[in-house]
Amino acid sequence: MLVPDPKAVRKLLTRYASLRIAYAERGRPETARELEDVSYTLCVMMGTTDVYDAVAKADALLMAGTAAAGSGTRDRGPRPPVERRTVGLRTGADHPAEPLAESGR
């Protein structure tokens, strides 16, 4: 049996989730069409006819890949900390959240 590339599966799952959210928020017809296309592609890639089964199989595939990668003997060492930033917003008591480009300050 052919196994899909985990990177492609992850990318498709991300797109599927983003479109589900966008469609729930706005309900635009073009978003619905794109969601149908992504759902179909996910079903074909995972060998199912139901998108919920496809998502479950995709999650299982990615979890299996993560578990297999984590069982290696090579020590990769600790990961460096990730710096979290808020880009483009000015906040504070005297500055409500506003885009910097539009603030004129």
Rank of each mutant, 00 (worst) to 15 (best):
A54D: 00
Y16V: 07
P78L: 12
G47Q: 09
A64T: 05
R76C: 08
P96I: 08
S71G: 04
E36A: 12
L19E: 05
T91I: 13
G65S: 04
A93L: 12
S71V: 15
A17G: 03
S18M: 14
E25Y: 01
P99F: 12
E30H: 07
E98W: 14
T49G: 13
A64N: 09
S18K: 15
L61Q: 05
P81D: 05
A17L: 14
L61N: 01
A64Y: 01
Y40G: 03
A24G: 12
R10V: 00
K7D: 06
R84F: 08
T73N: 12
D5K: 04
P29D: 09
G27W: 11
Y16S: 01
R20A: 05
T31N: 08
M63V: 01
A24E: 15
T48D: 05
M63L: 06
G47D: 01
A60F: 03
K57N: 13
S103N: 06
L100E: 10
M45F: 03
L2K: 08
V51S: 01
T31M: 11
R84E: 13
P78S: 15
A58S: 08
R26G: 06
L12P: 00
P99I: 02
E83C: 02
P81H: 03
G47L: 03
L2A: 14
G104E: 08
R74Q: 10
G72R: 11
R74G: 06
A22P: 05
D37F: 10
M63G: 03
R10Y: 09
R10C: 01
M46F: 01
G92F: 03
D75A: 03
P78F: 10
V51E: 00
R76A: 10
V55K: 00
V38N: 00
S39V: 06
G104F: 13
T66L: 15
A32M: 10
P80E: 15
H95L: 13
T14V: 06
R90A: 04
H95W: 14
R33P: 02
L2R: 14
S18P: 01
Y16H: 15
V82G: 03
V82E: 06
E83R: 14
I21C: 04
A67K: 15
A93G: 05
G27A: 11
K11T: 11
V82D: 10
A68F: 04
R26H: 13
K7Q: 12
V51P: 00
T86I: 12
R20Y: 03
